[in-house]
Measured scan of single mutants.
Amino acid sequence: MSGIALSRLAQERKAWRKDHPFGFVAVPTKNPDGTMNLMNWECAIPGKKGTPWEGGLFKLRMLFKDDYPSSPPKCKFEPPLFHPNVYPSGTVCLSILEEDKDWRPAITIKQILLGIQELLNEPNIQDPAQAEAYTIYCQNRVEYEKRVRAQAKKFAPS
Results as ranks from 00 to 15, higher is better:
144 Y>V: 01
42 E>I: 03
133 A>F: 06
120 L>I: 07
156 A>Q: 12
40 N>Q: 06
139 Q>F: 07
33 D>E: 07
15 A>Y: 15
144 Y>C: 00
122 E>N: 13
147 R>P: 04
39 M>L: 10
156 A>N: 04
97 L>D: 08
134 Y>I: 07
145 E>C: 08
33 D>V: 02
157 P>G: 10
156 A>E: 13
152 A>M: 05
69 P>E: 01
95 S>G: 02
57 L>P: 05
112 I>C: 11
96 I>E: 00
41 W>L: 03
83 H>P: 02
17 R>C: 01
135 T>C: 15
58 F>Y: 13
147 R>E: 10
38 L>H: 01
103 W>Y: 15
155 F>D: 08
44 A>R: 01
7 S>I: 07
134 Y>G: 05
61 R>Y: 09
18 K>G: 07
134 Y>E: 06
138 C>Y: 00
116 I>N: 00
93 C>Q: 06
108 T>N: 14
11 Q>S: 11
155 F>Q: 14
134 Y>W: 07
68 Y>V: 04
114 L>S: 12
49 K>M: 09
131 A>V: 13
100 D>M: 15
43 C>N: 11
55 G>W: 09
13 R>V: 01
46 P>G: 07
137 Y>F: 09
56 G>C: 00
132 E>D: 14
141 R>H: 13
91 T>G: 15
57 L>V: 08
81 L>E: 00
15 A>T: 13
69 P>R: 01
4 I>F: 08
10 A>G: 08
100 D>K: 12
29 T>D: 10
57 L>N: 09
6 L>N: 13
69 P>G: 02
110 K>P: 09
62 M>N: 02
54 E>K: 08
69 P>A: 05
73 P>W: 02
8 R>E: 14
5 A>N: 12
114 L>T: 12
9 L>D: 15
158 S>I: 12
20 H>N: 00
67 D>K: 07
23 G>Q: 00
158 S>E: 06
26 A>T: 00
79 P>K: 14
53 W>R: 04
11 Q>P: 11
111 Q>R: 15
33 D>C: 05
31 N>R: 09
40 N>Y: 09
155 F>P: 02
25 V>S: 08
49 K>V: 15
112 I>N: 13
94 L>W: 05
69 P>V: 05
121 N>T: 12
8 R>S: 02
135 T>H: 04
12 E>H: 05
126 Q>W: 11
17 R>N: 02
116 I>M: 14
37 N>E: 14
65 K>D: 05
7 S>A: 01
132 E>N: 08
29 T>F: 15
139 Q>L: 11
23 G>H: 06
45 I>Y: 06
73 P>S: 06
123 P>W: 02
117 Q>M: 08
81 L>N: 00
151 Q>A: 03
113 L>G: 04
15 A>C: 12
106 A>C: 10
19 D>G: 07
110 K>I: 07
69 P>M: 01
104 R>V: 05
41 W>A: 08
78 E>M: 14
117 Q>G: 12
4 I>R: 09
44 A>Q: 01
5 A>P: 08
47 G>W: 08
19 D>Y: 03
84 P>M: 14
69 P>H: 03
51 T>Y: 04
99 E>W: 08
126 Q>M: 11
29 T>E: 13
156 A>R: 13
120 L>M: 11
134 Y>T: 05
70 S>H: 07
151 Q>H: 05
152 A>F: 07
61 R>L: 11
41 W>K: 06
124 N>D: 01
52 P>M: 10
117 Q>C: 12
111 Q>F: 14
82 F>H: 07
155 F>L: 10
45 I>G: 04
2 S>F: 14
3 G>S: 04
141 R>V: 10
23 G>I: 03
51 T>D: 03
65 K>M: 15
154 K>W: 06
104 R>W: 04
130 Q>S: 09
43 C>V: 15
97 L>A: 11
106 A>H: 01
155 F>A: 07
81 L>K: 03
21 P>L: 05
128 P>M: 03
112 I>W: 04
123 P>M: 01
141 R>W: 07
9 L>T: 03
41 W>Q: 05
127 D>R: 03
154 K>Q: 13
96 I>R: 09
6 L>M: 15
88 P>S: 14
91 T>S: 15
104 R>K: 11
92 V>T: 07
98 E>Y: 15
38 L>S: 01
30 K>S: 11
113 L>P: 05
118 E>W: 08
22 F>I: 01
128 P>A: 13
77 F>T: 06
116 I>Q: 06
88 P>I: 15
135 T>L: 12
46 P>L: 08
56 G>M: 07
5 A>R: 04
152 A>Y: 00
119 L>S: 06
92 V>K: 01
98 E>R: 07
72 P>L: 01
119 L>I: 05
62 M>R: 00
13 R>K: 05
28 P>F: 06
97 L>H: 11
21 P>S: 08
81 L>V: 12
29 T>K: 13
11 Q>D: 12
125 I>H: 03
60 L>T: 09
150 A>F: 10
102 D>S: 14
112 I>H: 12
97 L>M: 12
32 P>T: 13
71 S>P: 07
86 V>D: 02
107 I>V: 14
2 S>P: 10
89 S>F: 12
90 G>M: 10
79 P>T: 13
23 G>L: 06
144 Y>M: 00
32 P>V: 10
3 G>T: 08
154 K>S: 14
93 C>G: 03
37 N>W: 09
97 L>G: 06
131 A>Q: 14
4 I>T: 06
35 T>Y: 02
36 M>L: 14
2 S>Q: 15
60 L>A: 12
150 A>G: 12
96 I>A: 02
131 A>T: 14
21 P>K: 06
106 A>V: 12
148 V>F: 00
42 E>Q: 09
10 A>D: 00
117 Q>S: 11
113 L>Q: 06
125 I>Q: 07
147 R>W: 08
21 P>Q: 00
29 T>P: 04
46 P>W: 02
143 E>S: 13
20 H>G: 01
55 G>V: 07
34 G>S: 06
143 E>W: 08
13 R>P: 02
113 L>H: 03
35 T>I: 02
68 Y>Q: 00
121 N>Y: 09
11 Q>R: 13
148 V>D: 00
156 A>M: 09
43 C>G: 11
127 D>P: 00
121 N>D: 14
78 E>F: 04
151 Q>S: 03
141 R>Y: 10
117 Q>F: 12
28 P>V: 06
29 T>N: 15
57 L>D: 05
128 P>N: 04
154 K>D: 12
136 I>Q: 12
65 K>R: 15
63 L>I: 12
51 T>Q: 14
153 K>A: 15
